[in-house]
Design a protein around this nucleic acid. Sequence first.
DNA 1: GGTAGACCTGGACGC
DNA 2: GCGTCCAGGTCTACC
Length: 323
Amino acid sequence: MAIPNYAAGSTLTIALPKRFDLPRAVCSYGYFLLAPNNWVSSERTLYRPLHGSGDRLIHTAITVKDGAPPRLILRCDRRVDRGEGRSLKAQVSRMLRLDESFGVWHKLHPQARRARFDRMFRSPSLFEDLIKTITGCNVTWPNTMRMNVLLCEHVGGGGFPTPSQLARVRVDTLKRRCKVGYRAERIVRAARQVVRGELDLSTFEDQCKTTDQVFRKLTGIYGIGEYAAANLCQLIGRYDRLPIDSETYRHFRQDLDTPTPDNPKTLHSRIESHYARYAPYQFMAYWFDLWWAYQKRFGDARRWEAHTHGTNFTANRLTQEES
DNA sequence: GGTAGACCTGGACGC
DNA sequence: GCGTCCAGGTCTACC
């Protein structure tokens, strides 16, 4: 692939909320380590191909230009028109949650306010978050990273595959080329439903619905169970559901030094009541604890990059590092 | 409604 | 080198 020439393309600027911190916003959730995201810590820049008009791929370099006020700079490797520019800005705003307000969260959790922990990284589209969530289930983190690299390489042409690109792939081909295993059926089925209009992902971002309604609807997607639906809830911006999984159990047992009962139901309700005081931001309080514990072990997240730190996040490493 | 078993893959571990 | 287990789960058949 040719090296993108950012000098040849358009430069877009985005106004930033107060106290915005790009490295903290990017390096706040594991998806920043997944392809096609490429965080270069020494440059404090996120490189990431996005989809423009007609799904053409536009390579972008996202950074902050200091000044009064500071602005987000989005350098593109090609010229973009006004409509395309709006679309790119919207995608970047979604990734960095620039439209969300966290005043209530900061009041609930002063330590998080001091640490500037608020805008957790996500994908430019809910579709990408959905597929990334499926690739994260029942698998080690390095394997999730590999699946995303292969999806971008073999299906997305370097970017993250669009619904139509994935809808065209045969399940067996996806399984063989991208090593996603049984997840291939789930990925292709979701993509085809989106393309056919049977699955309208924009309805999940409808703020009129309750989290319970959104959660139930998400579990109706083939391949999305309780954990994945709760994770998608936070990616949609609803933080009052906890995606409890084996990693939560480990964190609760080790990092919080909490004796855990054998019965999963008892454990679930114990974890939920532990974070209940942060409602409706239970997930953020949980993730703050977990992310803090990861950084204690592996150093400042702002210096993590996929090729250097990606393999740290296996249950085996996490368990060993603790002892 | 509760639960056991299957499902892809690859790393870790024991032998 | 090889076999087994299991990982940031989910689905389905069966009871």
